[in-house]
Amino acid sequence: MIERRQVDVALGARRYRIHIGRGLLDEAARLLALVPGRHALVLTDANVAPHYLARVQAALVEKQVQSWVLPPGEQEKTLARFGEVMTVLAGMGASRDVTVLALGGGVVGDLAGFAAACWMRGVRFVQLPTTLLAMVDSAVGGKTAVDLPEGKNLVGAFHQPAAVLADVATLDTLPERELRAGLAEVVKYGALGDAGFFAWLEDRAEALLAREPEVLAEAIARCCEHKAGIVARDETEQGERMLLNLGHTFGHAIETEQGYGGLLHGEAVAVGMVLAARLSSELGRAPWPDAARLAALLERLGLPVAIPAGLGPQALLARMRLDKKAVSGALRLVLWRGIGQAEVVDDVADEAILAVLDA
């Protein structure tokens, strides 16, 4: 049995707890305590439901529980699916005491959270992440959204969960590609603000790929602690929280240009981080060896480090202009000074970006 860990997210007078451990979804009393009202909606997808939905429903047997199972994939994170969830809540007769539970990865969490933010102007929701990417990133911090064909996460709200239960046992059934995609977000935390953690990951790359429970749990806890601190200081992404988007402006452009059917989010972020590091070096802001070290770690973790074939630089740059950090059409990028030293940069010329996209 691995040691259980807890991380608190403090937002002034508000706070919630991230629970990290093995077997959390088997604790019926814990799950029941997270639903104080009479109604509960469990949102999940067709990959996760066969493994974990029944046990969550059984834990909530005293409540009026409805489940909604989505097809898997980023392409399902749409306004149309959001509308379906609203219809389900209405059909349940859900009042303001409903709790929405997100059982799944980032797509499920983002959609469930956005639905909870909008139903009756905001109701309680709980994150039950079942992917590594969701555990270390998307389930924490209250960002909720759906995608448009024009760009990722363009419609959304900040709406914090009441709690996060990261049951590490769910990673046992996670496909290998999804595990590797989640590791990109783990690497991100070292790259943007913790050189010591980056070195720790370099020493344990093989252990992470082998899903060694203690190593995974430690990595998850350290990422959550890092994110909790940043979110506490900048909940609505006015400054420091932008650093958490290292690699995302490039990565989101790749995902959108591929129609959300190519690289997984974490894979696109891996490519995006490498592009951001190379651009930083080209601009003389960071040493080239650090960019090479980042690419080497990502490759060891089985992640892509180059733009997929068929994506043109001009098309990607146009997608980047719809990034949420852009101001009056001017790009704002998260670059770095080297490993552990991310920064927000406003004045990067299109020519420099296109040169990196075309390299």
Rank of each mutant, 00 (worst) to 15 (best):
R332Q: 12
P129D: 07
R124V: 00
A112M: 11
T130M: 04
A134W: 11
A295V: 06
R121F: 15
R222L: 04
M86E: 00
A46D: 06
V344L: 14
A295G: 10
V56W: 03
D346I: 02
E237V: 10
Q238R: 15
H19A: 12
L179M: 04
A232H: 14
P304Q: 08
G105D: 03
V164A: 09
D97K: 12
L279F: 00
E76F: 06
A286D: 00
H252L: 03
Y52G: 01
G151V: 10
G229L: 10
A139Q: 15
K325D: 06
Y189I: 08
G122I: 08
V9K: 12
E240Y: 09
P129E: 09
E176Q: 08
A228S: 14
E27D: 12
L89A: 10
L316A: 04
A102T: 12
E299W: 11
A58S: 15
S138T: 10
N47L: 00
L243V: 13
D110M: 14
V85W: 08
A210I: 03
I20S: 06
R5H: 13
G247M: 04
I230N: 10
R337N: 09
R337D: 02
L303T: 08
L179I: 09
V56F: 00
A80R: 10
A318Y: 05
A349K: 01
D194E: 04
R30K: 06
L79F: 10
V140I: 13
R278H: 10
V186S: 05
A207V: 01
Q64L: 15
R30W: 09
H39G: 01
E255Y: 09
I254D: 14
G340I: 03
R177S: 09
L101P: 01
A199G: 14
W200T: 02
K77A: 02
Q6F: 14
E150I: 09
